[in-house]
Amino acid sequence: CITTAPAFATDTIKAVVIDGYPSRALWVKEFTNFFIPAVDARLAKTGNYKMDWQESYGGSIVKPKGVLEGVKLGLGDIGIVTTIFHSSKLPSQAIAAVTPFVSSDARAVSKAVDEIAKEFPAMQNEFKKQNQVYLATGVVLDTYQIFSKKEITSVKDLEGSKVAGAGMNLRYLEGIKDAAGVRGGLTNFYNMVQTGLVDHAMLWPEAAATFKMAEVAPFMLDVSLGAVNSKTVTVNADYWKKLPDEVKTALQTVAVDYRDHLAGLAMDRAAESIKAYEAAGGKVTKLSDEERKAWVDSIPDIATEWAENLNKRGEDGTKMLNAYLGKLKDAGHVGVRDWTAK
């Protein structure tokens, strides 16, 4: 993929960037508007190399679930992997999902996860097995909240009801009496609530605003289940090997900036979205501290489950978990429940 021009000129390096999500998705748009110009600017300083970007998003090469395999097989050189699809291949990526009720600050969570990825070998090993190199963690949602048709104020109100969710967050409901988690996707939460198929839906404020949830679920219970990492920028390992050091450094440095930039944007968006939700007739009720405590204590110990699973695989799951929570604590985010492994 790398073409070398005559020695006196700038070397041009082709890079195919892939994601299965369309270019209007927040993290994809920021890859185009932030990541790529930032790399170009750094490389322009010395003028030794110039990138020739080919951005292929929205299913033109891979679908959202196919990015991991696409980068692995060289269909893309750089990819934005949505890690929640790959619990089997990337188990350590669930680190934030198994520690709910700790932090709803996308910036803190993305920074902590990213540091864990760099300080412990587990995450990089998982990507290495998929023939790719880890670059950065992206957090695009601040926290899951509960959006309901009727006003609810306590966890008791969730008992015996149907709650729409997706992925790991369905497990947060396991301790609530007779509550049934119903699997849904972003595009059908609206319909599910509207028709009474479910009583509540778990999603984050930005998504709630985008999908006009206020129309069918005008009551938001501010539970603040927590921010979750779901995106990882990776590079195909064969491609990485051939990159000059200057380009590698540029990509790694910009990846960290992109991480913080994205998390900051996610927070801004979340705040705007709550306002938009309220302006559209939505009402926000805060769940009391005691209620949050009761809920989090009812959840099975998914964090220890996660850590032990990694330990079994020969990684330091317990230490990772403790270090991750320590980093959040240092940043001022102390969980309602102590998820450190027993």
Binding site: S87, S88, K89, P91, G167, M168, L170, R171, G181, R183, I302, E305
Partner: peptide, 13 residues
């Protein structure tokens, strides 16, 4: 060899 699965652990795989 890897016994990889799809789905959500604890929900259905």
């Amino acid at each position: 060899e890897s016994k990889d699965y799809f789905g959500i652990p604890g929900v259905f795989t």
